[in-house]
């Protein structure tokens, strides 16, 4: 299983979800497959889960989808107990675990290539609905209720390293422009102001 085929399957299921991505190829691939106003493409590691958690708390009636990677989750493992205890019931976390620091050219293995199991860590942190999937069919079975239902879900998708994102043309929408688009989308769909300052 590769991440891109998971994304291809997920993209058409996105409706008014808010999708937060971490860095790396997934940001490029997701942005390419799903150019939606509800996308917040963060472009840094170790932030997506926490930002997604804050969003989910602020908008408890909206489904928030976080797209993470093993390297990024390992950089901010302290998020897991925090998210578990805050317990937002509208947050779906997908960790595409290729067991490699893949952006680094040298493809050094991450801890998940060794002894570390993110599902068990998540469960131990208190996220009960945590699963690991290893093929596309199982992924779909786990992901569908996470995208369409409720609850706090944590799906570790074991994927092969793929460098397909290097062939995709990257966006020239920078982080600030993405923020404005995202916030205006929330304002529009929630009918409330978020940016307060006026000139």
């Amino acid at each position: 299983m590769i991440r891109y085929e998971c994304f291809e399957w997920m993209a058409p299921l996105i409706d008014d979800h808010l999708v937060v991505t971490s860095l790396s190829g997934q940001r490029v691939e997701w942005g390419h497959l799903s150019n939606r106003e509800g996308n917040l493409l963060l472009g840094s590691m170790g932030n997506a889960l926490a930002v997604g958690c804050g969003l989910a708390m602020a908008l408890p009636h909206r489904r928030v989808v976080v797209l993470e990677s093993d390297g990024s989750i390992l950089l901010s493992l302290f998020n897991l107990p925090t998210v578990a205890n805050l317990g937002p019931q509208n947050l779906s976390v997908f960790v595409f675990d290729n067991q490699i620091y893949s952006g680094t050219r040298i493809s050094e293995p991450t801890a998940t290539a060794g002894k570390t199991d993110l599902e068990i860590i998540a469960r131990g942190a208190g996220i009960e609905d945590a699963v690991t999937v290893r093929d596309l069919e199982t992924f779909k079975k786990a992901a569908l209720p996470a995208l369409t239902g409720s609850g706090l879900n944590f799906i570790v998708a074991k994927v092969e390293e793929s460098r397909g994102h290097r062939k995709i043309q990257r966006t020239n929408m920078d982080l600030l422009e993405n923020k404005y688009r995202f916030v205006r989308y929330i304002e529009k769909t929630e009918g409330k102001p978020i940016f307060l300052g006026r000139g």
């Binding site: 600030l176 422009e177 404005y180 102001p193 940016f195 307060l196 300052g197 006026r198 000139g199």
Partner: peptide
């Protein structure tokens, strides 16, 4: 009525 779009958003 003043906009909440700041100069940066307007630039984009």
């Amino acid at each position: 009525e003043r906009s909440t779009a700041d100069l940066t958003e307007n630039k984009y």
